[in-house]
Write a protein that binds this DNA or RNA. Structure first.
Lengths: 267, 267
DNA sequence: GTACTGCGTTTCACACAATGAAACGAGACC
DNA sequence: GGTCTCGTTTCATTGTGTGAAACGCAGTAC
């Protein structure tokens, strides 16, 4: 899926609309017409029509009647509906809760989006040290330097590292960030072999975690979960040992539940 | 959808794509192609192309590779971005927190979407009796029988009640629901006059609340806040008295902060 | 005051993108 | 094997989305 759509199917106007929404998402607190026209590379008139269409649909709004466009409430409604509808989250929740309670560390559930970013679907906070991690449901994070991300990349077929390189996504966030393609590829094979991914302060300084991919009914990974905590509390040995084992077991259980849920629907 | 866009500007393909997303949102856990084709009234081939386009963009996904389409992660990302970008929420939060702490009752912040539904932007739970209300950030609720909704409808110009009638939205949820247009109109004038809206178990049995509209810099209402609690704890007199006063004051303060924030940006 | 500049808006003729009918193929069911 | 139903593909047609350019309206400079 390096192209936007499998075949040459692709309704151009819709792709363009999505591009504008993405620009608005990236832009802090909205952008004026001209800016969007410039950065999208489309004609001003086209952008104008698009934005007005999106505004009428609630995907975009202009505070009172000003000239700066920002994302609209409709986006929130859809996002919330997505969360409610995904059975992944529903099935995973009890398992994640047990995991959190057992170690009292922060637990995450996440997937990759089409840009190879990690998107958090669930976050269960540890009772200790709440708020040191900047993760949050719906937020995105880079995949090459997070536990969730690396676990999911390792489970992808094709050449995810290549895709990341193309996008110039291999930024360095901390001294530990693996930012060289070759090294990242080695790391991914290692992850596949041992069945879990580590993040040793590669994204946020002071935060370590262990993550495992969750296999869906079809056998391929549909999500991943992680257990994360402050570096001074979680030793690398415990990450590799007890925590990794617990994470793998939890991932396996969620996978089974997903299969069961699917079969139930089918019947 | 009495006219999706002001003039005749409206990119048809985008409007159609939005219609499909809305259908998926309403449908529990996804829908197959044929169903979407039927309920959207579009040709099967068109729906097919649309869905594939949306899938490529991440707005829609198919679990493994099945035939049922559901909303995709991209929706969640946008929704989260919307929440983070709106300065309404940012400015309101500290004020709402004070309000919640003062009475230890659940506090809401919400807006109307383009279909005249209430959308919750923030919910601060009371420490007592958590979970009796089904509200949640990003969820929608009817406007004619909620405090937030009525406060916002009352502040709208035009004929919001007429719009609700057209949509057949005046459903009855409890014996107390105001479902007659004429009566609702009277209620709205009453609300405008006294400056706050009540919900006396009109939406959820056992839940009462008082709500006030928040005026943005331009003077018109941009949102509303409410204080809600179980009927047996919050007496109607205290709703009309102490709580209403506190809600009005909080709404006023948020309005001022919004004005200030806007002016800051402008400078 | 005028000239200028930067913005959102509108117009318009053209081109080709999006469309839907219909044909196709795969799988399930009987 | 026949007959459904469903997703997929093809293809000719047309009307939709397009961008260049013109417009109008601010604000600013001078």
């Amino acid at each position: 899926m390096t192209g936007v759509v499998a075949r040459d199917y692709a309704v151009r106007a819709v792709v363009r609309a999505a591009r504008l929404l993405e620009l608005l998402r990236a832009s802090e607190g909205g952008a004026p017409l001209n800016e969007l026209a410039a950065s999208s590379g489309l004609a001003k008139a086209s952008v104008f029509r698009m934005l007005r269409t999106l505004e009428g649909l609630g995907f975009v709004e202009r505070p009172d009647g000003s000239d700066t466009y920002r994302l609209g409430v409709r986006c929130l409604e859809l996002g919330q509906a997505y969360l409610e509808q995904t059975d992944l989250r529903r099935e995973a929740l009890p398992v994640l809760e047990r995991l959190r309670d057992r170690f009292d560390e922060t637990v995450h559930l996440g997937v990759l989006d089409d840009e190879y970013r990690v998107v958090y679907l669930e976050k269960l906070d540890s009772t200790q040290a709440v708020g040191i991690m900047m993760s949050r449901v719906g937020k995105t994070a880079p995949s090459h330097c997070t536990g969730l991300g690396k676990a999911l990349l390792a489970a992808r077929d094709g050449d995810p590292v290549g895709a990341l390189v193309e996008r110039g996504a291999l930024r360095r966030y901390t001294p530990n960030t693996i930012h060289r393609p070759a090294e990242l590829r080695r790391e991914l094979t290692r992850i596949t072999r041992r069945g879990y991914a580590l993040d040793l302060e590669e994204h946020e300084p002071g935060v370590r975690c262990v993550a495992c991919a969750i296999d869906g009914p079809s056998g391929s990974a549909v999500a991943a979960l992680s257990i994360a905590g402050p570096a001074q509390r979680v030793a690398e040995e415990s990450l590799r040992g007890e925590l990794a084992a617990a994470a793998r077991e939890a991932a396996r259980e969620i996978g089974l539940r997903l299969g069961a849920a699917r079969r139930e629907v089918a019947s």
